[in-house]
Structure formats: C-alpha cells, structure tokens
Design a protein around this nucleic acid. Sequence first.
DNA 1: TATAAAAGATGACGTAAGGTCACTTTCAAC
DNA 2: GTTGAAAGTGACCTTACGTCATCTTTTATA
Lengths: 248, 248
Amino acid sequence: MFHINEFKKLSGVSVRTLRYYDKIGLLKPVSKTEGGHRLYTSTELKKLQQIQFLKIIGFKLGEIKIMLESEEWDWSNGLMKQLSHVLHEKDRLSKIEMSLRELINGIAIDGEEFKIKKIMNLYTRDSRDSKKILNYYRDELNVKNKEVLKKLPNMASSDPDSLEWIALVGQIKKYMHLGFRNSRIQNIIKRMDVKKGEDFKNEEVFLDKLWGIRMSPKESKDYNLYPIDHEALNFMEMAYKYYLDNKS
Amino acid sequence: MFHINEFKKLSGVSVRTLRYYDKIGLLKPVSKTEGGHRLYTSTELKKLQQIQFLKIIGFKLGEIKIMLESEEWDWSNGLMKQLSHVLHEKDRLSKIEMSLRELINGIAIDGEEFKIKKIMNLYTRDSRDSKKILNYYRDELNVKNKEVLKKLPNMASSDPDSLEWIALVGQIKKYMHLGFRNSRIQNIIKRMDVKKGEDFKNEEVFLDKLWGIRMSPKESKDYNLYPIDHEALNFMEMAYKYYLDNKS
DNA sequence: TATAAAAGATGACGTAAGGTCACTTTCAAC
DNA sequence: GTTGAAAGTGACCTTACGTCATCTTTTATA
C-alpha cells in the first residue's frame, strides 16, 4: 500500500496526473483511507507503466482507457493505424525540415534582408491563382503518402500468409534493376511459384487480386489498393516466363 | 476591401480564425464599417500567408506575433532553434516507429494473445528495481533499437527481405499443428531453403542470428529480441531435416 | 421605403492533459 | 491535544480554434 507521494516516486508520474487519471477513471487507486487519501499497490504500478508506454507510443488517454478496459480490442489494427500516423508525421517533419534549411541557407547567403522577401515568394508562387495555401500544403504533404502508406499495412494486416506476398513483391521491386534473368530474382520467383502451389482459400483471394490486376488494368478499382505498378507486374511476368522455360 | 467572408475564400482561413487573430492582435483588419464589420485588403492577405507558413513550420501564434511585430527579431537564430526542435521530434518518432514495428511483428508471429502478456513483460522485467519507466524506455528504445536493431539490419523495419522471414516464421507457427510432415509446412520450409540459398550479406546476418538462437539458448541476450520460441525452432529443425531427407 | 433574409458580431462553453495557485482537511509524531 | 506535513478539492490557465446561441448590421426585394 503506497501513499500517493510514494507512488509518485515509484512511477515518476506527478501527483496531479495521478489525481487526474483517477478522475477520468483511467487509473483508480485500489482503495482510500477513511479520510479519503488514495492508496495504490504494485498492481496499479504495472497498469500505470502500460499506460505510460502507450502514451509514449502516441495514443490518447481516452484510447488507452478503451484498450485496457475492453478485452476484444484489435491490437493489430490499432497499432497499424498508429504506425501509419507516425510515418505520416515523420514525413511532414521532413518536409518542414527542408523548408527550414532552405530558409536558413537563404539567410546565410542573402543576409537578413532575405527574410520577408523570400518567405513571401514562397507563397506568391502559389497564390497567383488565388488558391489556398493550406490546400497546397495539404496536397503536397499529406495526400501522397497517406494513400500509399495506408493501403499496404492494412491489407497486410498481421496475417503472415499475406505478409509473405507483400514481402515477395517488395523484393521484386527492390531488385528489379538486376534484370529478370538474375539469380536472385529467379529465386524470388521460385518462392512465389512454390507458394502459389498452396492453393488454400486465403491465399487464393489475395493471389487472384494480385495477379488479376494485370488483367484488367483500367476498370479495376483494386488497382490502387496494391502498391504495385504495371512496370513491376510486367517485369514479374517476364521473369516468371523465363523461370518456367528454364525449369522444364 | 474585402468583407470577412470574401477574405476567407481568398485565404482559406476560417472566419472564426480570422476573428480570433483579430482578438489576439495577430492580424487586425485594416478598418471596420460603421456597424463594426471587418474589412481587409490584399496587404492583410499577404501577412496572413506569412502567418500560415510560419504556423506550418511549427511556430506558435504568440511567437509569430513577436516575429512579425519586432523589427529586430533574430531570424537566423529562431529558425535554427526550430530546426533543432524538428530534428528532435523526428528522432523521437523514429524510435516510436521502431517500437511499433516490433510490436506489430510480434503480433504477426505470435497472434493476438501476444498483446498484454508481451507488453507487460516489457515492464515487469524492469520494475523490480523500481526505476522509472521513462528511463527504462529511454534505455529500451534507444539502446536496444539503436545498437541491436541497427546491427541486424532492419529486421524490424519494413525491408521486404526481412519481412519475408518474419512472414515465413509466422506461417510455421500458424500451421505447426499440422505436423512437420504436412505438405504446407514442407512447402514453407522449401521456400525458406530457397531463400537461404541467397547468401547475400544482409540475409546472412539475420539468418545466422535466427538459426543461431537455437544454439545458445541460455546465454543469448539476443533471445528476447526475436519473437520466436524454442518450440517453434525445434519444430523447424525437425521439419527441415525431414525436408532434406525427402529431397535427396 | 419597409421588411425579410443573409451575413456579421459577440460571448460562452468545449477540447487534451494536465500545471499552478488557494484553501481546507487528514495523517503522524510528539 | 497540538502541530506541521501531506493530502484533498476546486477553480482558473494553457493552444488554437470549433460550435452553438443570441443579437445587430447589411443587402435584396416588394
């Protein structure tokens, strides 16, 4: 049984925060003294540590409450979403970093009078057509990777079967530059062929989609769902033909 | 002279925001009508665009106000500080990203029951000596990931090469109950064998570690780094032997 | 020119996660 | 029983606005 001050020292969390967590029902003390002083045990300490971790990872207190309360929380999905969010944030910061460096270099080169002048130019470039900056920035920064990054992890989910396909296709793209005759590429193709042999239902669905994209490139709504482009698909096809020829 | 609604359309900034900026003295309308309606000109539009830019870059409204008001604001210094701040944030996010990927991979391999169990283990291990989590995490996230994960290139990251291994091991565990003679299992083993044949350096490191864990189960500090247990490893070994026997 | 409708103004409350007073009550030691 | 330390509660503050609700001004039409 720890008093709040001891508990604070054990956990490193401020007293105000502990009272706040109590109030919002995130972490209740195990009991109270007659006078109303809060009492905690090591069980609460563990829970608090989980909370701290999830908070660092970027979840909000409300979300954390739900996660820890409900038994059927979809961890895989939640973590994926969080990851996507983090990647998006990182990307945004990278763009900001570039802008800042540009400005700093500009000032270093052009001196102080650079400031307003240049900053304004960054805009007038765009404001000529009286479009909104925010939208400009939103397009530049967000749309691009939101679409691409979000799609892949969701479909991969946490199923190792689908994950392997993702990995295989990813490797194809990674090593495409080696040419379809290259042994590494041929090895990847071989693994795909072996895996293709396992015609169980889960795979089938994914496989049909993946291989099927090539068939109906225009009308396919699924096209955007997979981060695989026609170049890579054509390459795969060539490599696969080559593989079949040399196999027999 | 623009009325507030026209100005909003030109700038893309909400009416509420414009009134707010007026109130805090960040952007005042050039004049008002008799009845008190705000009137703006293109001068205010330019200033607003500067404000928007600085906001995106990460400055707070209070800071922006000072910047634009005072003539002698040290731009170079301020931008540098901001850059430093951005870099720190990026770094923090990178660590979070690694943690998330680690968790996600863990779930991909061990399934849902991984969740609380594993997350809690991450803590209780340390809480015995009543250190604060934050420090623990700083150690965990920094030291572990930085040193170890960097050494074994990207196993936890999104590199498709490593991803395939994770997927393969995940499938082994998923279908272990079928027995090592099962054709699906044997197919997975075959793919592992084929991939193992690609003896490029990146793979080698990972592979040695993965396969090597079995060798030194007790002293291995790396053991905890991979979400793979001995049961699965033994199973893999049996399946692999069986595969080799039936191959020749 | 009278009136109705649209547009604008003002003010209050809410957000997330607590920090910082101010004031009061309980605990623990003597 | 007294007293100082520790704990309690409550209120207001922070950012950058969003969202009503109510009231006034402007504008368009009859």
